[in-house]
Simulated scan of single mutants.
Amino acid sequence: MYTITVQAFVKDGDEIVGLMRHSTLSHMVRTMLYRDPAIRVGFPALTYTSGGVTERVMRWGVRNQRFISNEVTGSWLYLSTLEVWAETVSN
Rank of each mutant, 00 (worst) to 15 (best):
A8P: 04
E87R: 12
S26H: 06
T3G: 12
R30Y: 04
T5R: 01
T81S: 09
R30A: 06
V89M: 09
R66Y: 14
Y34M: 04
G18Q: 02
P37Q: 09
L77Y: 13
G13Y: 13
V89F: 10
V41D: 08
V53N: 03
G42A: 00
T73D: 14
M58C: 04
E83N: 13
L82Q: 04
E71I: 15
T49R: 01
V29R: 04
M28I: 03
T5Q: 02
S50E: 06
Y2T: 13
V57I: 10
R59A: 11
R59E: 13
R30F: 09
W85Y: 11
E55M: 08
E83S: 12
V41S: 06
N70E: 15
N70Q: 15
Q65P: 01
L77H: 13
V29E: 05
T47H: 00
F43K: 02
N70T: 15
M20C: 06
L19F: 11
V84Q: 12
E87C: 14
Q7I: 00
V84M: 13
A45F: 00
M1W: 10
D12A: 06
T73G: 15
G51T: 01
M32G: 05
E15L: 06
I39K: 10
Y34G: 03
Y78K: 00
V53Q: 06
D12Y: 10
M28V: 10
S50I: 04
S90D: 08
S80N: 00
E15H: 10
P44R: 00
S75T: 15
T47Y: 00
G18H: 02
M1G: 14
S75G: 12
V62G: 05
T3D: 14
T5P: 03
Y2E: 14
R40C: 05
R21E: 08
G18D: 03
E87L: 12
W60R: 03
V6L: 09
S23L: 07
M58D: 05
F9I: 07
L25V: 06
